[in-house]
Design a protein around this nucleic acid. Sequence first.
DNA 1: TTTTTGTAATCGAATTTATCGATCGAATTT
DNA 2: AAATTCGATCGATAAATTCGATTACAAAAA
Lengths: 301, 301
Amino acid sequence: MTPLPTLRQLQFFMSLVRRESFSKAAEECFVSQSTLSSAIKEMETLLDQRLVDRSTRTFALTPSGEEVATRAPAILAATEDLARAASGRRPLEGAFHLGVIPTIAPFILPRAAVRLHNAYPKLELFLREDLTAALADRLAAGLIDAALLAFPYDLPGIEIIEIGDDPFWFACDADHAFAKRRKLAKEDLGECDLLLLEDGHCLREHAIDACDLSERGGKASFDGTSLFTLAQMTRSGLGATLLPEMAIKQGLAKSVGLVAIPFTKPAPSRKIGVAWRKGSGRGEEAKAIADVIKEIFATSK
Amino acid sequence: MTPLPTLRQLQFFMSLVRRESFSKAAEECFVSQSTLSSAIKEMETLLDQRLVDRSTRTFALTPSGEEVATRAPAILAATEDLARAASGRRPLEGAFHLGVIPTIAPFILPRAAVRLHNAYPKLELFLREDLTAALADRLAAGLIDAALLAFPYDLPGIEIIEIGDDPFWFACDADHAFAKRRKLAKEDLGECDLLLLEDGHCLREHAIDACDLSERGGKASFDGTSLFTLAQMTRSGLGATLLPEMAIKQGLAKSVGLVAIPFTKPAPSRKIGVAWRKGSGRGEEAKAIADVIKEIFATSK
DNA sequence: TTTTTGTAATCGAATTTATCGATCGAATTT
DNA sequence: AAATTCGATCGATAAATTCGATTACAAAAA
């Protein structure tokens, strides 16, 4: 039988791939750098192949490394699903209606739907994409069981479990004055016009609040209706915009040819979480679903 | 993050499921019974669920145990494929023509094809099902690169790597005189008529040789053309037959309502292996393919 | 150039974990 | 009742993992 790498090694490796740094990955995995370093090395010995190219300054995987990076996530996900399915096993059967806002849905849901099905085969997931306000109404009316939203957002009578922090990135055309910058401070934004989503999208408010922007008039709020059209419009030279990291990491900026620039810490951000109506009896299920989404969110950084 | 069971634990568990015995499984895994026992226990603690029902005398899995037993093989297979794909990585690209005999093909190939594709995505596998003699000719002519055959079989100029031992089982209708027996010795066979595959199938020769049967005349060689029809005919009260274990384990006897009875050790058996033409240059690839098939063969016992 | 900084490899000690053999108790079989 | 089989458990021992400290190296800054 072929000797197998450890799941732990695969976790370390995937963290390494994500963070592109041994020490950062070690931090993420709550182990010392030496531990992670030797774990990777041992895996390389086992497979008899280099996985990471240490010769160049920039982080790079070898072909074998790419191979592992491609396959490992499915293995880890399947094992997590196994653990979930075999353990405590909340009900999580039958219909569950989940609302999601448009600035999250396309970047999380495709993978989440698969994972949820694997973890809870008997779960029938119904999805509804809508703005926060509309989802809150539906939540209150009991039309949906839970909602994947961005915060802060005042929602009385609602319980929330946090998924994580989603920082904003600055995105602009290659011709833009900031295009060559490696980092930006939010104070820099005072100088330039920004395209934002039309009113009603919480992303707009969150961006304005987080970056201390005033509600400035003028073309600054040209108003796109989705992050894809927004990115497209920005590309057409209409200015710059702010995009959530989860969209960046899914390749939104790259796919339309935009330059994406992170902010200096503390980076402005919105919070992502799952909400449900207090006393709806669906809290446990919502938490279980949040757990799966949290996994996906964490591993797509 | 959910704590994960170890691959090792999953391996132990699957071995336990296969062997239906802690000590047998421990033996198979080359560890002591106490080691395996505590590994299973630890996994149960981790998942906070019993996986094996120890209350009854007969081996039984709990629902959670079934869940794990269903999911674990895919995880282990995927990890093995990862290791194979990332390591040494022989060519194994492009076309590869593999011959398989009819008494093996249906019980191994479905899974083998999937695994081979995962392990070697660039491999294009072409299959040909035929009798040993025909495959040997094709091998010699270079029309196929390797063949999955049963042995012994005299094949000059051919190299072989062994996959494993495939014991014969006695299979009969519930009305048969032997139907209630738990075990049989091959000497018992002298008394009864046996249905065998028609001439040309090596399985026929192997069964006769292994069980010290003479070429008796009469209805004893009614002659089926495939194991499925053979099993069907046996079910129709035409007698009893000998089936290879790989077919039994795939449920062939059960699916047609036959009683399957193992032989006392040393059980009569045929050997399974992969053959290729000496000097064909395809030896390494054949070995790699044999490795994958070996996995499947071992885990389907 | 030299210094500084960030990054990864390495070493040795301490700890944790895994493994084994022996033994025990419960359930079956003889 | 005695013998057998099977799995759980215990304590000693061997093996591994882990960490912190240190070293080595390369790029960036002075």
